[in-house]
Amino acid sequence: MKLFDIAHSRTGDKGNISNISVIVYDQKDYERVREYVTPERVKAHFKGIVNGEVVRYEIPTLGALNFVMQDALGGGVTRSLALDAHGKCLASALLAMDIPAKN
């Protein structure tokens, strides 16, 4: 299954840092997402895009995870040659991550 089947996201940026929040639709899916969507898996998912550290912050009361990704925007909005210099489509790309289906 895809992450977008059970969650939505928001994203932001500051300089060369991208920030993606993943929010489950149903609180019952939070633990599965928390266990599977790790900083290591997020960094691997964005191989070649995110070159720095990925830090995850957990917000269980909201059913959300927030990922702060360093060196993720090709030098920053004003320096990057990327068509999506602000990294807004990174949220959609993360939601396309495959996760295990519920047992």
Rank of each mutant, 00 (worst) to 15 (best):
M1T: 14
K2M: 06
K2C: 14
L3E: 12
L3H: 14
L3I: 05
F4I: 09
F4H: 10
D5Q: 15
I6Y: 02
A7E: 05
A7Q: 12
A7D: 09
A7I: 10
H8W: 05
H8C: 06
H8F: 09
S9G: 14
S9K: 00
S9Y: 02
R10F: 04
R10W: 02
T11Y: 00
T11L: 01
G12R: 14
G12H: 12
K14M: 03
G15L: 02
N16D: 15
I17T: 13
S18F: 06
N19E: 01
N19F: 02
I20N: 04
I20D: 04
I20M: 00
S21K: 06
S21H: 12
S21Y: 05
S21P: 03
V22Q: 12
I23C: 07
I23Y: 06
V24L: 08
V24A: 11
Y25V: 00
K28S: 12
K28I: 15
K28L: 13
D29I: 12
D29T: 13
E31R: 12
E31M: 11
R32V: 00
R32G: 03
V33P: 13
R34Y: 09
R34Q: 05
R34N: 10
Y36G: 00
Y36C: 02
Y36Q: 00
V37A: 05
P39D: 01
P39H: 00
E40Y: 02
E40P: 03
E40G: 03
R41V: 01
R41D: 03
V42I: 07
K43T: 11
K43W: 14
A44W: 04
A44C: 10
H45F: 01
F46P: 14
G48D: 13
G48I: 13
V50E: 15
V50D: 14
V50P: 15
N51F: 15
N51D: 12
G52K: 04
E53D: 06
V54G: 11
V54H: 11
V54M: 03
V55H: 05
V55R: 06
V55L: 12
V55F: 08
V55C: 04
Y57N: 08
I59T: 07
I59P: 07
I59W: 09
P60F: 08
T61Y: 03
T61A: 12
L62H: 13
L62R: 12
L62Q: 08
G63I: 11
G63N: 15
L65E: 09
N66F: 01
N66W: 02
F67A: 15
F67K: 13
V68A: 03
A72Q: 10
L73C: 03
L73F: 03
G74D: 08
G74S: 11
G74W: 11
G74Y: 11
G75Y: 09
G75Q: 14
G75S: 03
G76C: 06
V77L: 08
V77S: 12
R79A: 13
R79F: 03
S80I: 11
L81E: 14
L83A: 06
A85G: 03
A85V: 04
A85W: 11
H86Q: 05
G87I: 05
G87Q: 07
K88T: 02
K88Y: 00
C89I: 03
C89Q: 09
C89W: 04
A91N: 04
A93N: 10
A93K: 10
A93F: 10
A93Y: 10
L95K: 08
L95S: 02
A96P: 07
A96E: 15
M97N: 08
D98T: 02
D98K: 07
P100C: 01
P100T: 01
A101N: 15
K102G: 06
N103H: 11
N103F: 02
N103I: 07
